Amino acid sequence: MLQFLGNIEAKIDAKARIFVPAAFRKILQSSAQNTLILRKDIFQDCLVLYPLQVWDDEVAKLRSRLNRWDKEQQALFRQFVVDAERLEMDANGRILIPKRYCQMIGVTSDVRFLGVDNTIEIWNNDSLEQTLIDADAFSSRIQALMNNDPQND
Score class of each variant (00 low, 15 high):
M1Y: 11
Q3D: 12
Q3W: 12
Q3C: 12
F4N: 09
N7D: 12
N7K: 10
E9L: 09
A10S: 15
A10H: 15
K11Y: 06
D13T: 07
D13Q: 02
A14F: 01
A14L: 04
I18C: 06
F19A: 12
F19C: 06
V20R: 00
V20K: 00
P21Q: 14
A23Y: 01
F24H: 00
R25H: 09
K26R: 15
I27F: 07
I27W: 10
L28I: 13
S30T: 13
S30I: 10
S30Y: 11
S31Q: 13
S31L: 09
A32N: 13
Q33M: 12
Q33P: 02
N34Y: 05
N34I: 07
T35C: 02
L36T: 09
L36F: 08
L36S: 06
L36Y: 11
I37T: 12
L38K: 12
L38S: 13
R39C: 00
K40D: 03
D41F: 02
D41I: 00
I42R: 11
I42K: 12
F43M: 00
Q44V: 02
D45V: 00
V48C: 11
V48A: 08
Y50Q: 13
Q53N: 11
Q53Y: 06
V54D: 11
W55M: 12
W55Y: 14
W55C: 11
W55Q: 11
D57N: 15
D57P: 10
E58G: 02
E58V: 11
V59Q: 09
K61D: 14
S64K: 12
R65A: 01
L66N: 05
N67T: 04
N67L: 09
N67P: 01
N67D: 15
R68H: 05
R68C: 02
R68W: 07
W69L: 15
D70I: 00
D70F: 02
K71S: 13
K71A: 10
K71C: 05
K71W: 07
Q73N: 04
Q74Y: 06
A75H: 05
Q79T: 03
Q79C: 00
Q79M: 07
F80I: 10
F80N: 08
D83F: 02
D83V: 00
A84D: 12
R86D: 04
L87P: 10
L87C: 12
L87Y: 11
L87A: 07
M89T: 08
D90S: 01
D90G: 00
A91G: 04
N92W: 08
G93L: 04
R94D: 03
I95A: 13
I97H: 03
P98N: 06
P98Y: 10
P98D: 08
K99Q: 14
R100Q: 13
Y101R: 03
Y101G: 08
C102I: 05
M104D: 11
